[in-house]
Simulated scan of single mutants.
Amino acid sequence: MQLELIRNATLKVTYGGHILLVDPYFAPRHSLPSFTGRSPNPMTELPHEIDDILEGVELVIVSHLHTDHFDAVAKERLPKSLPILCQPGDEEKIRESGFTNVSPLTQSTVWQGLTITRRQGSHGVGPVVEKMGQVIGFTLVASGEPTIYWAGDTVLYPPVAETIREVSPDIIITHSCGARWDSDLIVMDAEQTIEVSHLAPRATIVATHMEALDHATVTREDLRQAADTGGIAPSRLLIPADGETLHLA
């Protein structure tokens, strides 16, 4: 399989002979408001032209409708006939933007030989979850491919650990920037990412959703230092740069 980090949570995944795009966030650098007053968002530019990112894409997965996961530029630039999988409850809002092939991922679906299964996520813990709203993760399974668990915008909490135990994924993709809202952690930070590595000692962890938004509290360098301190080898915890492509067996 091939995994290209575009920016933030946006991934282009070549898997089972197909190309998937996850959580498209195409806004130009500094074109959206700040979350904390530190910087307009996104803080980085796209590494490629949007047409190049969209080349070959056959399926889009939208985990939730926060603007850093499905923004106005993506709604404008994505072909309206592209199939989109989303969490239940978001399908009508996506259709309102003109998309004609939108399906909620209620449990598990098979698309072109790929088994895509919805997984629980919690965009924080406690009262902040009501502000953040519902989110999903997913697993990907295909013949001859590694099993992938894309955790999404979630903290490490019991259902995430349960998914890791149940699925035994070969690759786990985390959102590891330690973003906070009203001081509450809303995605994994360095400590939780290291804990994921310990929960899945045979898996490769790919840390994404980093250095693009101003409410993040963990940089790539911070995470690498924490991994070194925690005894996690660089080959087990990959922290790709924007635009970097990983080839994973």
Rank of each mutant, 00 (worst) to 15 (best):
E4D: 00
Y149A: 07
S197Y: 13
R224W: 02
G137H: 09
T10S: 14
T174S: 14
P33S: 05
Y25R: 05
E4S: 05
E4F: 00
T100H: 06
F70V: 06
V196L: 04
L246V: 03
H30F: 15
L54Q: 04
I171N: 08
L213S: 11
I84Q: 00
L21R: 04
S108E: 11
I53L: 07
T217K: 14
I50P: 00
P104R: 01
C177S: 15
K12S: 07
D68H: 13
W150L: 13
L156P: 05
R119D: 03
D52F: 02
F99V: 09
G16I: 10
A190M: 05
L82P: 15
E76W: 12
D68W: 09
G144C: 04
Y25W: 11
T193V: 06
L199Y: 05
G137P: 09
T217N: 09
V141Y: 01
V141Q: 07
M132G: 12
R224K: 13
G98R: 10
R118T: 09
T163E: 15
E166S: 13
I94F: 07
P24H: 06
T229W: 00
E211I: 10
G178M: 07
D153K: 00
R202Y: 08
H247E: 12
S31D: 15
S235N: 05
G152H: 00
D189K: 08
L32D: 12
T67F: 03
H69N: 09
I136A: 12
I239F: 06
E58K: 07
Q87S: 14
E221M: 05
I6L: 08
R7N: 01
D71I: 14
T67N: 02
S143N: 01
S197L: 12
G230Q: 05
H66Q: 10
I164E: 10
E195S: 04
P88R: 02
G17V: 11
S122M: 12
S103P: 05
D222S: 12
V73W: 13
V218N: 07
T219L: 07
I186P: 12
T36R: 07
I205R: 06
L21P: 03
T193K: 09
Q192R: 11
G124D: 01
F99Y: 05
R38I: 03
I186K: 10
K75M: 15
R77A: 13
L32M: 14
E191I: 09
D182W: 08
A203K: 00
A233C: 02
A72Q: 10
L3V: 13
G121Q: 03
P169R: 09
A200V: 03
T219F: 07
L246I: 01
L20F: 03
E211Q: 14
K80A: 12
V60A: 03
K80I: 09
V22S: 04
G37E: 01
I53W: 06
S143K: 01
E96D: 15
C86E: 02
Q192A: 11
H198P: 06
T44L: 11
E211L: 09
I84D: 00
R118K: 15
P127F: 01
D214K: 11
V22I: 15
G178N: 09
E4N: 00
G231R: 01
R38D: 08
T163C: 14
G17H: 11
I172D: 10
I84H: 00
R95T: 08
I50F: 02
R95Q: 12
S176I: 08
V22N: 02
D214Q: 10
I84C: 04
D214A: 14
A142H: 05
H175S: 13
T14A: 04
G144M: 02
P104W: 00
Q107R: 15
H175T: 07
D228K: 12
